[in-house]
Deep mutational scan, measured.
Amino acid sequence: SAVVMEEGSPGEVPVLVEPPGLEDVEAALGMDRRTDAYSRSSSVSSQEEKSLHAEELVGRGIPIERVVSSEGGRPSVDLSFQPSQPLSKSSSSPELQTLQDILGDPGDKADVGRLSPEVKARSQSGTLDGESAAWSASGEDSRGQPEGPLPSSSPRSPSGLRPRGYTISDSAPSRRGKRVERDALKSRATASNAEKVPGINPSFVFLQLYHSPFFGDESNKPILLPNESQSFERSVQLLDQIPSYDTHKIAVLYVGEGQSNSELAILSNEHGSYRYTEFLTGLGRLIELKDCQPDKVYLGGLDVCGEDGQFTYCWHDDIMQAVFHIATLMPTKDVDKHRCDKKRHLGNDFVSIVYNDSGEDFKLGTIKGQFNFVHVIVTPLDYECNLVSLQCRKDMEGLVDTSVAKIVSDRNLPFVARQMALHANMASQVHHSRSNPTDIYPSKWIARLRHIKRLRQRICEEAAYSNPSLPLVHPPSHSKAPAQTPAEPTPGYEVGQRKRLISSVEDFTEFV
């Protein structure tokens, strides 16, 4: 048969007729292969192709491409040299491709048809291009793949890379869960390890502090508590009631339409708007009261037996805890006409967050109470924005700035309102402590230090009264110190430094 060459192609190359033996071998191979691939376009007849790359030819070592076609129900084999250009295909004639002069020997084609199974398996396991790669995943090629499931790999992101949580363990979102698992493993320790309690022994800490320079003076030496005195035992138990972190309780009120001037209507609300609910979820963490331990979680007086509701929101960081007394989460009882059960919590909070959804101005004093010092007013606006402002009593104007209003988005509203309420509550605590000038409020841990110092002074006084020969370590507060001759004046800087060093040991009130 003659071949018409394309323009620009090399000279004529004689194409030899395939021997009958080659056709029989390739026909047997075509019957084993699956003929249901995917359909081509209507211009080209339905056909199945599979590209198999052999590394070497037997005796020649030339890479070839073998295409199996099922045109007219008769499979045909096409061998081509890759750099050459194939002729145009037609549905009426068999596929013809040019070969190099080196394939002119018909014996070479017979060798190609009689490829060993080793070469076929190696060509099938190679990388296939384009559409033949999808075909190689079918059941027909499963014989050339190794048996057994593939090893499982770690989760992959859409980009093909490992997620960040699997790369950096410290930033993994499941870090707290692993800590819980470690605690569970520790709890399952053997009885021999049960006595080993991690941490620092208080006796060891005391020993280090006792021999430090801070205890060089007799006034700073630790003293032993009497065991037989019940009054001192009660004082030590009272110390446990003062937490070592700051605590805040903040009221949250929802004002519906037409309720801006009605205290009873505001306290009777059992739910609010959708934006109000989203605002609550951002204030803190939802907790169930019956599962809380009052000595570990500050509840601000809420009952854990269901008297004040089942849930509330709280927030904490390293040095403070805040609980929100939310009116809509507290039960509304029919027998309580004046809502006294709610007001006994909300009316005693220094700061209230008022979500004013009424469309009218909310005035300070609508919720009557002796300790309502500051109101954080949240007014929802259009386009997911809110107006946040402050209202306070006249005696609080020096501590709280009420002249600045803020426009905040719904997303950042819980954070801004919480921070403003916490700052206002700190100012309210300082303002409330002014009624007792001898006990200015600095912080909870300073209050613990003052309680310890008062307890020490009482013990020293009782020891001096029981044994008059012992001198008083600290003179009583009601006694007057003996007159001392004025010492020589020293520079102001040295006096300030000495006073600062003494105050650092005794108390921190002056620095606050």
Rank of each mutant, 00 (worst) to 15 (best):
Asp217Gly: 07
Glu218Gly: 08
Ser219Pro: 13
Asn220Arg: 14
Leu224Glu: 15
Leu225Thr: 14
Glu228Asn: 08
Gln230Tyr: 13
Ser231Tyr: 15
Glu233Phe: 08
Ser235Tyr: 15
Val236Arg: 08
Ile242Ala: 05
Ile242Asn: 07
Asp246Pro: 04
Asp246Val: 06
Val252Glu: 00
Ser260Met: 14
Ala265Pro: 03
Ala265Glu: 06
Ser273Cys: 03
Ser273Pro: 04
Thr277Trp: 07
Thr277Gly: 11
Thr281Ile: 06
Thr281Val: 06
Gly284Asn: 04
Arg285Cys: 14
Leu286Ala: 06
Glu288Val: 09
Gln293Trp: 07
Pro294Gln: 15
Val297Cys: 12
Leu302Val: 14
Gly306Glu: 13
Gly306Asn: 12
Gln310Arg: 15
Phe311Ile: 06
Cys314Arg: 09
Cys314Glu: 15
Asp318Arg: 04
Ile319Gly: 05
Gln321Tyr: 13
Ala322Asn: 03
Phe324Asn: 02
Ala327Asn: 04
Met330Thr: 05
Thr332Ala: 09
Thr332Ser: 15
Thr332Gln: 08
Asp336His: 12
Asp336Glu: 12
Lys337Val: 14
His338Ser: 15
Lys342Arg: 06
Lys343Tyr: 09
His345Phe: 14
Leu346Phe: 07
Asn348Asp: 13
Ile353Leu: 04
Val354Gly: 01
Val354Met: 02
Asn356Cys: 01
Asp361Arg: 05
Gly365Trp: 04
Thr366Val: 13
Asn372Met: 14
Val374Gly: 02
Val374His: 02
Val376Thr: 01
Val376Phe: 00
Val378Pro: 00
Pro380Ser: 01
Asp382Phe: 02
Leu387Phe: 04
Ser389Ala: 08
Leu390Trp: 03
Lys394Gly: 10
Glu397Val: 10
Leu399Asn: 04
Thr402Cys: 11
Lys406Pro: 15
Ile407Cys: 07
Arg411Met: 07
Pro414Asn: 00
Phe415Ala: 03
Phe415Tyr: 03
Val416Ala: 03
Gln419Val: 10
Ala424Met: 09
Met426Ile: 10
Met426Tyr: 06
Ser428His: 02
Gln429Ser: 07
His432Ala: 07
His432Phe: 15
Ser435Trp: 09
Ile440Asp: 11
Pro442Phe: 05
Ser443Gly: 09
Trp445Tyr: 06
Ile446Met: 07
Arg450Gln: 07
His451Ser: 09
Leu455Asp: 13
Arg456Ser: 14
Cys460Met: 14
Glu461Asn: 10
Ala463Asp: 12
Ser466Asp: 10
Ser466Tyr: 08
Pro468Cys: 11
Pro475Arg: 13
Pro475Met: 14
Pro476Ile: 14
Ala481Gly: 12
Ala483Ile: 12
Ala487Val: 07
Gly492Phe: 06
Tyr493Ile: 11
Tyr493Gly: 15
Glu494Thr: 08
Arg498Met: 13
Arg500Val: 12
Leu501Trp: 08
Ser504Ile: 07
Phe508Lys: 15
Thr509Asp: 11
